[in-house]
């Protein structure tokens, strides 16, 4: 498990509008990569191209390549459904399926893959995924209750459990803590630290302290102005970005002088 991602000359369009221009980066396996930058700079858009989720928006298209261990996910004949089964995603707001129990939520992705699970296998997988998401101890006595009865932070960890239950190669997180209180945020950040032992984790965050705390490498995106495409400004070790950035724009952003 855990794959390396090479992004080569990636341009992203919404219709005729060029949203992101010329992204070039290499995301290492078993590490946490953070995307930071002001609103509208395209960091979420880039994240969503890594599992082809941006295609949900009509008119979206890309040029360039995204290679997962050398295989272009935009190559001819690649089914986005299969890409998404390898690249899990956690969203800004927790979105467990409201009609499903906690257990059914965890198993939702596995059941999609048409795997026939015996009851013992299902129980085992539920436990391991929930343990992987640091949620097992809190919910083990109410696995058959609806997931919507949990707190916001628990729901978000349930979504992480759902994503890792299918054992993806890569885990994408789109501002996973932006709707959570500090204690729940801490729980998720601890979890991200554990997750990088098994997965390639890419996280978009507005919180620079969070990027500094959880990530190994950080990518800073910026936008020249409204209507202009977002660009990758700098991509480096997190420690370097936050202590000694190469570019003045990066320094201005992380020191809070703008954005």
């Amino acid at each position: 498990m855990s794959k390396q991602i090479d992004i080569k000359d990636l341009d992203i369009f919404y219709g005729d509008f060029r949203a992101v221009d010329g992204v070039q980066m290499q995301i290492k396996p078993r590490s946490v990569t953070a995307f930071i930058g002001p609103s509208g700079c395209g960091k979420s858009t880039v994240l969503r191209t890594l599992n082809r989720m941006h295609e949900v928006i009509p008119g979206a298209s890309v040029s360039g390549q995204v290679l997962m261990d050398g295989n272009d996910i935009y190559g001819p004949g690649v089914d986005p459904v299969n890409v998404r089964r390898e690249v899990g995603m956690v969203f800004q707001r927790a979105n467990p399926f409201p009609t499903m129990s906690i257990k059914e939520n965890v198993l939702a992705g596995v059941r999609l893959n048409n795997k026939r699970l015996s009851k013992a296998q299902a129980d085992e997988l539920t436990e391991s995924a929930l343990r992987g998401a640091n949620l097992w101890n809190e919910v083990k006595d109410r696995l058959n209750l609806p997931g919507s009865g949990l707190s916001g932070g628990q729901q978000q960890r349930l979504c992480i459990a759902r994503a890792i239950a299918v054992e993806p190669e890569v885990l994408l997180m789109d501002e996973p803590c932006s709707a959570l209180d500090p204690i729940s945020t801490l729980a998720i950040e601890d979890l991200i630290n554990d997750l990088k032992e098994k997965y390639t984790v890419v996280i978009v965050t507005h919180n620079m302290q969070q990027a500094a705390r959880v990530s190994d490498r950080t990518a800073f995106f910026n936008i020249a102005g409204t209507g202009k495409p977002g660009r990758l400004i700098e991509f480096n070790e997190t420690s370097a970005i936050f202590s000694n950035p190469d570019r003045e724009e990066t320094e201005n952003y992380i020191s809070g002088r703008f954005g």
Partner: peptide, 29 residues
């Protein structure tokens, strides 16, 4: 149907029909 629910299903690797079964129909029941 909340867009988030639809995206949750798609991000798990659901086809369009599976997404409808997981997110749209339960929500609209």
């Amino acid at each position: 149907t909340p867009r988030l629910q639809e995206e949750a299903a798609l991000a798990l690797g659901a086809t369009r029909w599976e997404m409808i079964r997981m997110a749209v129909l339960p929500f609209g029941r």
